[in-house]
């Protein structure tokens, strides 16, 4: 199997597997964020569970990190290889005649998502790690000890307009990335036949509705605080 992972098809296969994992993660992230709109108490409970459960913290979180890093690193490796496959560029190339803008610019939408993720990590993930593992406060409680801190922190984060703007832009690029990426992942693992035709519509719906949902949640908290 070692030859498989070095081959062009094998690399695309592993890109697709990491994409499936990330798309599944995105869906559960959305579901939890959506809880903050429906029921703040439930959001607090689930956030505390996710933030303190050993299986999630010490097994799934490192797997997620690996998935994110692998998808980006392999994406760049493949892009470099692909660019080197055409030394002399065309004087005139009409790419829009046969393919979508999203499909031709995955590296750019991916790059913007990477920038967004770095900011998102600095904003949310690193302070969370600091509270739990540097300061050692695993209680998840507010400073005054009156209830969980998660919902209040979420509302506080969504106050500055610059963060909302960046957040929306990040998810617009994610939607563009998913509009090609969702179905591309299925094609890469060999799932393109009469049984998978329905997936294309579902993929488009996922690519638009999930990022749109994240944007709506952010706007909801911004305007309701």
């Amino acid at each position: 199997m070692s030859g498989f992972f070095k081959s062009s098809i094998g690399r695309k296969f592993t890109m697709a597997l990491s994409a499936f994992f990330l798309m599944f993660f995105l869906l559960q992230h959305f579901a939890i964020n959506f809880l903050s709109v429906l029921n703040p108490d439930a959001f607090n409970e689930v956030s505390h569970f996710m933030g303190t459960n050993p299986l999630i913290q010490y097994v799934l979180q490192p797997v997620l990190l690996f998935g994110v890093v692998y998808h980006f690193v392999m994406g760049f490796i493949l892009e470099i290889k692909n660019r080197s496959s055409r030394v002399v560029k065309y004087a005139k190339n009409n790419g829009s005649a046969n393919s979508t803008w999203m499909s031709r610019n995955m590296i750019y939408s991916g790059l913007f998502i990477l920038i967004f993720l770095v900011i998102h990590f600095i904003d949310f993930w690193i302070p969370e790690l600091n509270t739990k593992y540097v300061q050692g406060d695993m209680s998840g409680l507010l400073a005054d000890g009156e209830g969980y801190r998660y919902y209040e922190e979420l509302q506080h984060k969504f106050l500055p307009p610059w963060r909302i703007a960046l957040y929306c832009l990040g998810f617009i690029f994610l939607a563009l990335h998913l509009l090609h990426g969702f179905n591309s992942a299925f094609q890469s693992v060999g799932a393109n036949n009469k049984y998978t035709k329905g997936l294309k519509g579902f993929g488009k719906a996922y690519a638009i509705l999930v990022p749109l949902g994240f944007i709506v949640i952010a706007l909801f908290h911004h305007f309701n605080h």
């Binding site: 695309k12 296969f13 290889k81 692909n82 393919s99 499909s103 090609h180 094609q187 060999g190």
Partner: peptide, 27 residues
């Protein structure tokens, strides 16, 4: 040759209408 990123331009420009399903089958 480079890697396929499933943009589908090849299928559109192919003079014989070879389908992307063949790439999935190869995978």
């Amino acid at each position: 040759f480079g890697n396929c990123t499933n943009i589908g331009a090849c299928e559109v420009e192919c003079p014989k209408g070879i389908s992307l399903e063949n790439i999935a089958r190869m995978n």
